[in-house]
Write a protein that binds this DNA or RNA. Sequence first.
DNA 1: ACACTGACCACTG
DNA 2: CCAGTGGCCAGTG
Length: 108
Amino acid sequence: MASSFFEDVYEVARLIPKGRVTSYGAIANYLGVKSGARMVGWAMNEAHKLRDVPAHRVVNRQGLLTGKMHFATPDTMENLLASEGVKVQEDKIVNFSDVFWDPVSELN
DNA sequence: ACACTGACCACTG
DNA sequence: CCAGTGGCCAGTG
């Protein structure tokens, strides 16, 4: 099996329930890579283009849509989140703690 | 083959 | 409390 860092990221990203969001660090932490958050975002860059990975459900630790500019349009990410019931304001997720989905706690 | 960068996070001073 | 730096993997110049 191609147990690559990217592969794992794709898996977790796809497991994110609709209407929920997670952070790069949370995924990295779940994968056991403490400081691999940077690569998670990078993996997403390829992932959301090549695979059906909901990269719009992955934001930074602050709930800020840091990667919105990497989508087709800067409004794509915000639009997708809003479409799933996630409220976004000022490029930031409202009630972030409420919609936050931690793979370590959920997937255990 | 080397160095730097990249949608980040946490620690130290 | 605020600012700075290190660290992880993979890809590109």
